[in-house]
Amino acid sequence: MSVATLNHQATSPRRFGKRLLAHVAILALGLLMIYPPLWMLSSSFKPAQLIFSEPGLWPRAITLDNWAHGRVGLGIPFSRFFLNSAVIAGLSMVGNLFSCSIAAYAFARLEFRFKPMLFALAVTAVFTFIWTWNDFLGPLIYLTATDNYTVPIALNAFLDSTGTSNWGGCSPCQFCHRCRYSWSSCSPKSSWSRASRPRGSSRKEGTRKFWGLSDPTLGTTQRHLQA
């Protein structure tokens, strides 16, 4: 019997125990992590008087009224909120990806004057006070598209500079135009950034407060607040 086999036999129960312990710890913490979303789901099936009086997940009384009446309870169709949020999330994601892709490419691949200063500005210029446009959907899209600017820029540049990204080592093909290189080499590697956009877009949309405005600016977050 080889030494490796002996070592394996000696350590297997211990390793199994450690892995079991890790699973238990992760699951326990995981339950804590998902309790609030589960509570929300559970609350949607509870009568209003029970929602804040019983913290448990399993409702003592089940009702579908919240789903049936909540849809039109505020006098505005539920679809309006979703449509507004979808428009903002969709268009701002497109604008965000476009602006972030070209900016991230420039910061990661090009050398130009005042680059560090501009990079710091891009990272910090995330808090622009909004007051000028408050009556139309467009500004929301614009603000959301530019407000998340910093994340992909910083991430791509950081990943590139740290060598933790595969595309740090790729080089422009000899006959490729720079734009084509950017599109074909870098964009696929940023796919997970795309996946993260809708979350950020939705969150930012939610932090903008435009109450008392016309329908088009109402999103699902405002719907929550009203409810």
Binding site: G30, I34, P37, W39, R199, G206
Partner: peptide, 24 residues
């Protein structure tokens, strides 16, 4: 596990979770 742990990041700044926090 990764999905479970990432879920709060999607919801953390939502109004519903903040309301829930008041209850908790």
């Amino acid at each position: 596990y990764r999905s479970i742990y990432y879920l709060p990041s999607l919801l953390g700044s939502s109004v519903a979770i903040a309301l829930l926090w008041r209850q908790i």
